[in-house]
Computed example of a mutant assay.
Amino acid sequence: MDSAQMADDVPHPYSIEVSPMTKPEGHFQWAIRKSGKLSERSDRPHRSEAKAHESAMEAVERALKPGTDGGRPRR
């Protein structure tokens, strides 16, 4: 699956940005935007672009669940 196909799977108004990390080299991170505004970022490196995108999609799915606050525990 290429990045264009992966972008088509993201529900509106969310978008996912996957980018390579400098440290550790060869790993990827992600950011989720909702209507262009940063909503969430990955907190750990992922070994591949596909794994990073998969993790980001899981975060978007958590955010879409009704009655949840993005699936994040409150502090």
Rank of each mutant, 00 (worst) to 15 (best):
32 I>Q: 06
22 T>K: 13
56 A>L: 12
27 H>P: 03
48 S>E: 07
48 S>F: 01
35 S>W: 04
23 K>D: 10
51 K>P: 00
40 E>H: 12
33 R>T: 13
28 F>T: 09
34 K>Q: 12
33 R>Q: 12
35 S>K: 12
24 P>F: 02
26 G>F: 00
36 G>M: 05
34 K>M: 12
32 I>P: 04
41 R>K: 15
45 P>Y: 04
38 L>R: 14
37 K>S: 11
49 E>K: 09
48 S>P: 00
55 S>R: 11
29 Q>V: 00
27 H>S: 15
33 R>I: 00
45 P>G: 12
31 A>I: 11
40 E>V: 06
26 G>R: 14
44 R>K: 14
37 K>A: 11
50 A>Q: 10
52 A>W: 03
44 R>S: 11
41 R>W: 02
49 E>V: 02
27 H>I: 04
25 E>W: 06
36 G>S: 03
52 A>S: 12
56 A>P: 00
50 A>N: 08
36 G>Q: 07
44 R>V: 05
42 S>P: 01
38 L>M: 14
49 E>Y: 08
35 S>I: 01
50 A>P: 04
33 R>G: 06
28 F>A: 08
22 T>L: 14
45 P>Q: 04
49 E>R: 08
41 R>G: 07
56 A>F: 07
22 T>M: 09
27 H>V: 03
23 K>I: 15
36 G>N: 06
33 R>H: 11
43 D>V: 03
53 H>Q: 06
28 F>P: 02
31 A>R: 14
33 R>V: 01
40 E>C: 07
29 Q>W: 01
35 S>N: 14
41 R>Q: 12
33 R>A: 11
40 E>L: 13
55 S>A: 15
35 S>V: 09
37 K>V: 15
25 E>I: 13
52 A>I: 03
39 S>K: 12
41 R>P: 01
40 E>D: 09
30 W>Q: 07
51 K>W: 05
36 G>K: 02
42 S>T: 01
26 G>H: 03
33 R>W: 00
27 H>Q: 15
49 E>Q: 10
43 D>W: 04
36 G>R: 05
53 H>C: 05
56 A>E: 01
36 G>A: 02
48 S>K: 06
45 P>R: 07
36 G>P: 00
53 H>M: 04
29 Q>N: 10
23 K>H: 10
49 E>T: 06
37 K>N: 07
24 P>H: 00
38 L>P: 03
30 W>R: 03
34 K>V: 05
31 A>V: 06
44 R>Y: 10
48 S>W: 03
53 H>V: 00
52 A>N: 04
22 T>F: 04
31 A>D: 09
53 H>A: 08
36 G>D: 08
56 A>D: 10
48 S>H: 03
51 K>R: 11
32 I>C: 09
52 A>Q: 02
53 H>I: 04
53 H>P: 07
25 E>C: 03
52 A>M: 02
48 S>Q: 05
42 S>W: 01
50 A>K: 15
43 D>T: 05
28 F>K: 07
46 H>W: 13
47 R>L: 14
26 G>T: 13
25 E>G: 06
38 L>D: 01
39 S>H: 14
52 A>P: 03
50 A>R: 09
45 P>T: 12
54 E>R: 13
28 F>M: 08
40 E>I: 06
32 I>V: 15
40 E>F: 08
30 W>T: 02
46 H>K: 11
34 K>S: 04
28 F>Y: 15
35 S>A: 14
56 A>H: 00
32 I>F: 06
